[in-house]
Measured scan of single mutants.
Amino acid sequence: KKIKIKIKVYNPETKEVLELEIEVSEEEAEELAKKLAEELEKKGYKIEEVEI
């Protein structure tokens, strides 16, 4: 079964909002969402919402 992940991120420095969407297997979904959120935060983005 495929799971659709939508991530909306906001960069306070540039006032930019990015929306990302990807489909992955159920097993990958939670781990991938967690890794993406961590990487984006390292780059200065503030995570507003992660929906699985």
Rank of each mutant, 00 (worst) to 15 (best):
K1S: 10
K1W: 04
K1N: 12
K1E: 09
K2G: 06
K2S: 07
K2T: 14
K2L: 15
K2A: 11
K2W: 15
K2F: 04
K2D: 05
K2M: 13
I3Y: 09
I3S: 15
I3N: 12
I3W: 15
K4N: 11
K4V: 05
K4M: 04
K4L: 13
K4S: 11
K4W: 10
I5G: 01
I5R: 00
I5Y: 02
I5Q: 00
I5H: 01
I5A: 02
K6T: 04
K6V: 04
K6E: 02
K6F: 10
K6P: 00
K6C: 05
K6S: 04
K6Q: 03
I7T: 01
I7L: 08
I7E: 00
I7F: 15
I7K: 00
I7N: 00
I7Y: 07
I7V: 04
K8N: 02
K8W: 02
K8H: 03
K8Y: 02
K8G: 03
K8P: 00
K8E: 01
V9I: 06
V9Q: 00
V9C: 07
V9R: 00
V9S: 15
V9G: 15
V9K: 00
V9M: 14
V9E: 00
V9W: 08
V9P: 01
Y10A: 06
Y10P: 00
Y10T: 11
Y10V: 12
Y10D: 02
N11Y: 03
N11T: 04
N11W: 09
N11D: 08
N11V: 07
N11G: 03
N11F: 04
N11I: 08
N11R: 03
P12L: 11
P12H: 04
P12R: 07
P12A: 07
P12N: 06
P12I: 06
P12Y: 12
E13A: 11
E13N: 09
E13S: 14
E13Y: 07
E13H: 13
T14R: 08
T14G: 04
T14I: 05
T14F: 05
T14C: 05
K15E: 07
K15H: 09
K15R: 09
E16W: 08
E16T: 10
E16Y: 14
E16I: 15
E16M: 13
E16K: 14
E16D: 08
V17M: 10
V17E: 10
V17F: 12
V17K: 13
V17S: 10
V17T: 09
V17R: 13
V17Q: 11
V17G: 12
V17P: 04
L18H: 07
L18M: 06
L18G: 04
L18K: 08
E19G: 12
E19R: 13
E19N: 15
E19A: 12
E19L: 15
L20S: 02
L20V: 09
L20A: 03
L20M: 07
L20R: 02
L20N: 02
E21N: 12
E21Y: 09
E21A: 12
E21Q: 12
E21K: 15
E21V: 14
I22V: 14
I22R: 10
I22P: 01
I22G: 03
I22C: 11
I22D: 05
I22F: 15
I22W: 14
I22H: 11
I22A: 14
E23D: 13
E23N: 14
E23R: 05
E23Q: 10
E23W: 10
E23L: 10
E23K: 09
E23P: 10
V24Y: 06
V24T: 11
V24K: 03
V24A: 09
V24Q: 02
V24R: 04
V24W: 10
V24E: 13
S25T: 03
S25V: 14
S25G: 13
E26P: 07
E26I: 12
E26F: 07
E26H: 14
E26T: 05
E26C: 09
E27A: 12
E27H: 15
E27Q: 12
E27W: 07
E27L: 06
E27P: 14
E27S: 13
E27N: 09
E27C: 14
E28N: 14
E28R: 12
E28C: 14
E28M: 14
A29W: 07
A29I: 05
A29K: 06
A29D: 02
A29L: 04
A29Q: 03
E30D: 05
E30C: 15
E30G: 11
E30Q: 07
E30F: 13
E30N: 11
E31T: 12
E31W: 08
E31C: 06
E31Y: 10
E31N: 09
E31F: 06
E31D: 04
E31Q: 10
E31K: 07
L32V: 15
L32W: 05
L32A: 15
L32K: 13
L32R: 11
L32M: 06
L32G: 09
L32T: 12
L32S: 07
A33W: 08
A33V: 15
A33L: 10
A33T: 07
K34V: 07
K34A: 13
K34S: 05
K34W: 09
K34C: 07
K34D: 05
K34F: 05
K34R: 13
K35W: 12
K35M: 07
K35V: 06
K35H: 09
K35I: 04
L36G: 00
L36K: 02
L36E: 00
L36F: 12
L36A: 02
L36T: 03
A37W: 10
E38G: 04
E38I: 10
E38Q: 13
E38W: 07
E38A: 11
E38H: 08
E38Y: 11
E39V: 06
E39Y: 10
E39L: 03
E39T: 03
E39D: 05
E39N: 03
E39S: 04
L40T: 00
L40N: 00
L40P: 00
L40M: 03
E41H: 04
E41A: 11
E41Y: 04
E41M: 10
E41K: 11
E41L: 05
E41D: 02
E41I: 13
E41W: 04
K42F: 02
K42E: 04
K42M: 02
K42V: 01
K43A: 05
K43G: 05
G44E: 01
G44S: 00
G44M: 01
G44T: 00
G44N: 02
G44C: 03
Y45K: 15
Y45A: 13
Y45I: 13
Y45G: 12
Y45S: 13
Y45E: 13
Y45W: 10
Y45V: 11
Y45C: 15
K46E: 13
K46G: 09
K46H: 13
K46C: 15
K46T: 13
K46L: 15
K46R: 06
I47C: 06
I47F: 01
I47P: 11
I47Q: 01
I47D: 03
I47Y: 00
I47S: 01
I47N: 00
E48Y: 09
E48H: 07
E48N: 04
E48F: 11
E48T: 08
E48L: 07
E49V: 11
E49C: 14
E49A: 15
E49H: 08
E49S: 14
E49M: 11
E49Q: 10
V50H: 01
V50A: 01
V50M: 06
V50D: 01
V50Q: 01
V50W: 09
V50N: 01
E51F: 11
E51P: 01
E51L: 11
I52Q: 02
I52R: 01
I52M: 10
I52N: 01
I52A: 02
I52Y: 06
